[in-house]
């Protein structure tokens, strides 16, 4: 089974990298670009076929290591 975890900064947490990316895009002439927020994607391969168990495990992985829930939120996608 394959899974993808999206980790992004919580709303209200300052994202200077996102801001810099936004400025750079504006500088390239992409005038339509407003606020930009960046994050990371982690792809995982998991043994087993039980999607519910995988979700529970992934949630624990996010809480314990993959995300810092003081500043980040996460979304889990099972493929």
């Amino acid at each position: 089974m394959k899974a993808r975890v999206f980790i992004t900064l919580k709303n209200g947490v300052l994202d200077p990298q996102g801001k810099a990316i936004g400025h750079a895009l504006n500088g390239l002439g992409f005038d339509s670009v407003g606020e930009v927020r960046q994050g990371k994607v982690i792809d995982l391969e998991l043994a087993g076929t039980d999607a519910e168990k995988a979700k529970t495990d992934l949630k624990a992985m996010c809480e314990k290591l993959l995300a810092n829930t003081v500043i980040e939120k996460y979304e889990i996608e099972i493929k």
Partner: peptide, 8 residues
Amino acid sequence: ALMRNAAL
């Protein structure tokens, strides 16, 4: 938490 410096 400690985050990326504001000025990058």
